[in-house]
Design a protein around this nucleic acid. Structure first.
Lengths: 255, 255
DNA sequence: CTGGCGCCTTGATCCACATCAAGGCCGCGG
DNA sequence: CCGCGGCCTTGATGTGGATCAAGGCGCCAG
């Protein structure tokens, strides 16, 4: 194996919005060709390394934009260092609030990340004039709010085992949508977070997360081929444990 | 004392939007007189008693609208009955998601509530044509998302004492904005929730909430003249305990 | 090969909050 | 006046997950 210094290089490098992989899911997805041309002129790309801060809490942010590739964690920190993740963004998700200059959280690249960015002022100007952008942004914000409320139920009322099961189901569903395939027994799930980040997602400690992974393995609900991969060996049981009554298990329930 | 059967009757009964107490904070606050006339025709009022369900989880909701008076709790329930509050709405807040027919939570009147309602279809039609409504709704949704993320930090990482202190500060700030006055030592805070609802807000049990109230009293941070009233005797210490570093204590920081 | 570091797992112990249980207070109806 | 039910408080005990502590494994540098 030859060590490649830039092994995880992005394979895909759009120069025009029409070719963009997230064209039909991102904030621009309702935009007309005319509007797209304006966005095209204003946008610029930027890459981030894992662990790198994209915006930081309290900062007066000058940019906002869409995740093209990679995963971004939003997290809040108490003075004594206790930390809680409050958002986990995948390709096509939008970072930054128009009309709110000060960020209420850190946004940190969890993997290598490529962003499609805009200068705040320019984006706000475009937004003001665009019914489509505004509508899509409202939709996306409502989705994020729904996710946040589901997350609150998890943080406030679920046990450690239920939390981890819920987390795995959430990731599965997300992956199913992005990759346009159903959730099936045996599917391997790439987890873009280390144990510490998972703990911050779930409001637990790293030790408890580790123990719960071991418990799930012992109970035969998952396999752990390596620490960043989970194979779901019993999706139904996992869903049950998560306290959800969806049954989109083997259906092609893809938005 | 003569017992008045309808003692908490609403004193204020608008018939036209221009006179409405929430005219300048609600979803309609950016609307032009022309648009307001359309809303005026479509709106209707409805009152709810404490404990009454306004919408219920999984229901295909036909109405949405603004809280005019009273307090509404949004809550999610696990199959075995564990319950978590995920929203607490005051006058001018908006209930219901345009474009999302199925409610993901119960909305329950915590006090007597008066709502200004619209039929879903009519409201969505109005929204489609209105830059102002859409913009205001986006703003309000972003605010709700901010609140939800702050709440996630509370649920995931704060201790019982910190949770209760945070809750009191959140209520104080809300009351300060609605009543347009600063937060001062000695101010009496009316709590629109019983102990059980507070526990559901904070992800605790009713017993723990009760004990934490007693602890705050013993430490001299609050007085408890009756079970629905809290007098803040040391706002700075309470804020400190809540883990916040705002200092809008004695300022007229009113939005 | 060796040592060190980052990340994860596992075990032992502790403690904050849940659970179980027993009243207290107050308003209401008889 | 009493008894009852709703709501809250307080005490005793239990327990899930935190904390403390000790390695294990893989990777990299030397």
């Amino acid at each position: 194996m030859v060590t490649e210094p830039t092994a995880i290089e992005f394979t895909w490098k759009p120069h025009c919005c029409a070719d963009c992989a997230i064209r039909h899911r991102a904030v621009c997805s309702y935009s007309t060709p005319a509007e797209l041309a304006l966005l095209e002129k204003a946008k610029f790309y930027k890459d981030f390394e894992p662990g790198q801060e994209i915006v930081s809490e309290g900062e007066h942010t000058q940019v906002l934009g869409s995740v093209i590739d990679g995963v971004v964690a939003l997290q809040k920190t108490l003075e004594d260092g206790r930390r809680q993740m409050v958002g986990l963004l995948f390709p096509s998700d939008f970072i930054g609030r128009p009309l709110r200059p000060v960020a209420p959280y850190d946004a940190v690249a969890a993997t290598r990340v490529r962003m499609c960015l805009f200068h705040r002022r320019e984006f706000e100007d475009l937004l003001r004039g665009s019914e489509q952008l505004k509508h899509r942004l409202l939709e996306m914000t409502l989705d994020e709010l729904d996710a946040a409320q589901e997350w609150m139920l998890l943080l406030g009322r679920k046990t450690a085992a239920e939390k981890l099961a819920s987390f795995l189901m959430i990731l599965s569903r997300r992956a199913a949508v992005l990759e346009n395939r159903p959730i099936l027994d045996g599917m391997a799930l790439q987890i873009p977070l280390g144990r510490e980040a998972i703990a911050e997602y779930l409001g637990l400690t790293i030790e408890t997360v580790s123990r719960q992974f071991s418990t799930l393995r012992r109970k035969g609900l998952v396999d752990l081929p390596d620490k960043r991969t989970v194979a779901l060996t019993n999706v139904a049981a996992l869903q049950q444990l998560a306290g959800e009554d969806f049954d989109d298990t083997a259906s092609d329930a893809v938005a």
